[in-house]
Amino acid sequence: MAAETGTPTTLTLKSNDDELFSVAESAAILSVTIRNMVEDGCAGGVIPLDNVDGKTLASVITYMNGISAIPADEEKKKSYRDKFLSDKDFETLADMVLAANYLNMSCLMDAVSAKIAQVMEKKSVGWVRRKFGIENDYTPEEEAAVKEEHKWTFEGVETDDDN
């Protein structure tokens, strides 16, 4: 592979809105989906990624390049991931978790899932509904019942700051 021959191979990835990206093979094979294509020898031309749009693919590639530049040091990789995800909004994160799933990149997937979960931590029920666009489908009686059952979880919950 690239590292052995000394001449870095570049792959061309195409998003579903027809944007082209070139990325070093050594970085791209973080995605198991792409790695399988490379190993099967069908990564010669353009690799079409039908489920990822250009904006999301651009940030995934930024991540691929960033993380593969870090030598095997879990601590540093983790802090890179935290920094990489720190400024992403929820829509971007949702797109990224779908892309990471499609590309089969478990490290990115776990990091994004943890980040989304972190957003929910210690937040009120109403806040989670608004932030994640989740419809409250309980009737008032059901909601009262389910809240009563989970009363023990409301201790230390942050009060709503953006009503």
Binding site: S113, A117, R129, K147
Partner: peptide
């Protein structure tokens, strides 16, 4: 996957958000 990253208390509270 996302819910698995939550602590038990947060996970239980999320039940109150919607029936799904």
């Amino acid at each position: 996957n996302i819910l698995e990253c939550l602590s038990g208390v947060d996970l239980a509270r999320v039940s109150c958000v919607s029936s799904e």
